[in-house]
């Protein structure tokens, strides 16, 4: 078993943290995981991506080449990385930031305005990343929900723990609704 996940968006959207949380949860589950990231020199606004490779064996090559799951929170990120998505892969995208759905990709697409609902429910778009993690957890079960929540608590400032767990649960709910 080997799954390669790429989170991509703009600096400040919490894509790097989302990857860290997923990787940490995989290790909590007793799996092997490597997380890497790249971002521009600017703190916010430039392209940012975070990659996680999860496997039941030691992961040597640390980067994603062809990904199984792409989470795109900006049009730029989608345009840049959709080509590396496997044919039978899964695309999760933020419809608030992405106006043009990819024509080339024929696999499964989940589209929802994660950033908008984050702003509505928590007053800040920054919670979109954890909503996405809840969403991802419900549709793919790459790692256990329990470990993911534990990793969220372990990774966010303790004073925002409650909001983040609520955001996670919201993501799970949205996924359940979309799945029907």
């Amino acid at each position: 078993m080997k799954v390669e996940v790429r989170f991509a968006g703009l600096g400040g959207q919490g894509m790097v943290l989302a990857g860290q949380i997923l990787g940490k949860a995989a290790v909590f589950d007793g799996l092997f995981a490597v997380q890497t990231q790249s971002y521009g020199a600017e703190a916010r606004g430039s392209a940012a991506k975070s990659e996680v490779v999860i496997s039941d064996k030691k992961v040597w090559f640390p980067f994603v080449r062809k990904c199984d799951v792409l989470i795109a929170l900006s049009q730029q990120a989608l345009n840049k990385y959709v080509e590396d998505l496997k044919e039978n892969g899964v695309l999760i995208m933020d419809s608030g930031y992405i106006k043009e759905a990819p024509r080339s990709f024929k696999g499964k697409i989940y589209s929802f305005s994660f950033s908008k609902i984050a702003k509505e429910k928590f007053g800040n778009e920054i919670f979109a990343n954890v909503i996405v993690l809840g969403f991802l957890s419900e549709i793919l079960h790459l790692v256990s929900e329990e470990s993911l929540k534990k990793a969220v608590i372990d990774s966010v400032p303790s004073k925002y723990e409650r909001e983040n767990l609520e955001a996670f649960d919201l993501g799970v709910e949205i996924a359940k609704r979309l799945k029907g």
């Binding site: 990787g23 290790v27 995981a33 640390p62």
Partner: peptide
């Protein structure tokens, strides 16, 4: 940089 910024068990 790769090893320094990578996260792993």
């Amino acid at each position: 940089e790769i090893v320094a910024h990578m996260r792993e068990k």
